[in-house]
């Protein structure tokens, strides 16, 4: 039951990050949002017991390609304001379709009270075990990359 609750959080992370790709005004923020989409799909693979695929997704897409993309695109200051909100209906229709699947009462999880009380105790153990260190390492890598880009921009402004 804890995995279903974690799944809801991962769903929210991935969907909101995917919407943020074309709603944010700066291009470097959009690339960071894309890396969070990859991170969410890696969490999904971890939740359905496909550990090797989650690890490969984390190493190849999140660790390698997103870092490369952040460093390459970070010189762009402002994205062109080209968003047409009429086509945003497509995303809303698909989100409503998927939520109608998700909140169908025949598929809904039945949580008893003792399971809900047990959630607070088991959440910490579930987060701190298994592959959590890898996700912490990826988060630290992102912080280092973004900090390096910021420091580099400050430094080039000082020189030039």
């Amino acid at each position: 039951m804890i995995s279903v609750i974690i799944f809801y959080m991962v769903f929210a992370l991935a969907a909101l990050s995917a919407i943020c790709i074309f709603l944010l005004k700066k291009l470097s923020y959009a690339v960071i949002a894309l890396s969070f989409v990859f991170l969410g799909s890696s969490f999904v693979f971890l939740l359905i017991n496909q550990d090797a695929i989650a690890l490969l997704q984390l190493l190849v897409l999140v660790g390698g390609l997103s870092t490369y993309l952040i460093v390459a695109v970070s010189t762009e200051e402002h994205q062109l304001a080209l968003f047409k909100p009429g086509y945003f209906v497509i995303a809303l229709i698909s989100l409503s379709l998927s939520f109608s699947i998700l909140f169908n009462p025949s598929f809904a999880p039945q949580i008893s009270t003792e399971q809900a009380l047990d959630f607070a105790a088991s959440a910490g153990a579930a987060i701190a075990s298994g592959y959590a260190l890898l996700y912490i390492a990826v988060a630290m890598l992102f912080v280092v990359v973004i900090g390096a880009v910021v420091v580099l921009k400050e430094f080039t402004e000082l020189i030039v």
């Binding site: 279903v4 969907a15 999904v44 359905i48 497509i90 698909s94 989100l95 998927s98 939520f99 699947i101």
Partner: peptide, 12 residues
């Protein structure tokens, strides 16, 4: 649930 997250990401 997995079909739901895949479908919603595809639509977005």
């Amino acid at each position: 649930y997995l079909l739901a997250i895949g479908l919603s990401l595809f639509g977005i």
